[in-house]
């Protein structure tokens, strides 16, 4: 496979990983949207090259970001990164044989907590997803789901009892998503847990989980292990989902009320005419085909 011609996918910022994973002086191979890349970390900056050309680079939030195209928006804002008492936890890149869009959609889903993260993020005795609100914020081109609540037996590494966790979800670009969640030890603030997806190919992705959390007791190893445990519980489900590419065609998958955020996410992807990581549609006239 070679670089996609999907304009909507090309014109986005993608992370290639935590900056600290690219040692100064070293050349590291990487891959994005079907194309091989080379990352060179120099003492005064980073260079990302693909097929003989140099790509734009950003180094915000401890991560390396690049794009093949011209992103319409600046990289998303993350004001919590300025707060001095936040712990920065890089959970490490994990490769998943699934569409990156499937990863984002799974990240947005509350309903699977009792069944996939049993007795941790949910319990089978409390499966109900309470009504929540979704909105598309057109000024910043982000999706938000707010007023989400869920009973969680072990909401975070520092939990020693169950709690009703409050959640907000925020999709900042098709492959970058984060959630805000009540920390067990600071109920008036929000932990930030981000999932930055690096789509290698349409059905192979690398997940970079990153947390900005309030937690004075857990070790880095405990915080990272908790998030890795959750993510690898999702991985086996993601790799067995069929079709592995996200279907956008009406009727291919049937959402329920709890899937409101997924419905909005898919509608937003269609509006952007994004194709990379989606199942080819057969219901469109050729003149309607995105980028035809």
């Amino acid at each position: 496979m070679s670089l996609t011609d999907d304009r909507a996918a090309l014109d986005q910022w993608y992370t290639l990983g935590a900056l600290r994973d690219f040692p100064v002086g070293a050349e590291t191979p990487s891959r994005l949207l079907g194309e091989d890349l080379t990352v060179r970390r120099l003492s005064d900056g980073v260079e990302v090259r693909a097929a003989g050309r140099t790509l734009p680079v950003r180094t915000d939030y401890g991560h390396l970001w690049t794009s093949f195209g011209t992103p319409e928006h600046a990289l998303f804002a993350l004001p919590e990164s300025q707060e001095p008492d936040r712990r920065w936890i890089h959970c490490g890149p994990v490769r998943v044989r699934a569409s990156g869009l499937r990863l984002v959609e799974n990240f947005l889903d509350l309903a699977h907590f009792p069944y996939v993260h049993t007795d941790i993020l949910g319990s089978e005795a409390h499966p109900e997803v309470a009504k929540y609100e979704v909105e598309q914020r057109r000024d910043v081109d982000e999706l938000w789901a707010t007023k989400c609540e869920f009973y969680q037996p072990k909401a975070a590494a520092a939990s020693d009892e169950g709690q009703i966790s409050k959640y907000m979800y925020r999709v900042v670009s098709p492959f970058n998503v984060m959630l805000y969640k009540t920390p067990p030890t600071a109920p008036d603030r929000w932990d930030v847990i981000a999932l930055f997806v690096q789509p290698l190919d349409e059905a192979v992705s690398v997940a970079h989980a990153f947390m900005l959390v309030i937690d004075e007791t857990s070790t880095d190893a405990e915080l990272s292990a908790f998030q890795q445990m959750i993510f690898v519980q999702d991985k086996i489900v993601l790799e067995n989902q069929r079709p592995s590419l996200l279907p956008l065609q009406p009727g291919r998958e049937t959402p329920t009320r709890a899937d409101l955020s997924s419905v909005l996410y898919r509608r937003w992807l269609k509006e952007k005419q994004l194709r990379f990581g989606t199942e080819p549609r057969t219901d469109l006239q050729s003149t309607d085909l995105p980028n035809a």
């Binding site: 880095d220 190893a221 405990e222 990272s224 292990a225």
Partner: peptide
């Protein structure tokens, strides 16, 4: 005791 095997290589 949790050991940060990955990515920390503890």
């Amino acid at each position: 005791q949790a050991v940060d095997f990955f990515p920390g290589r503890e």
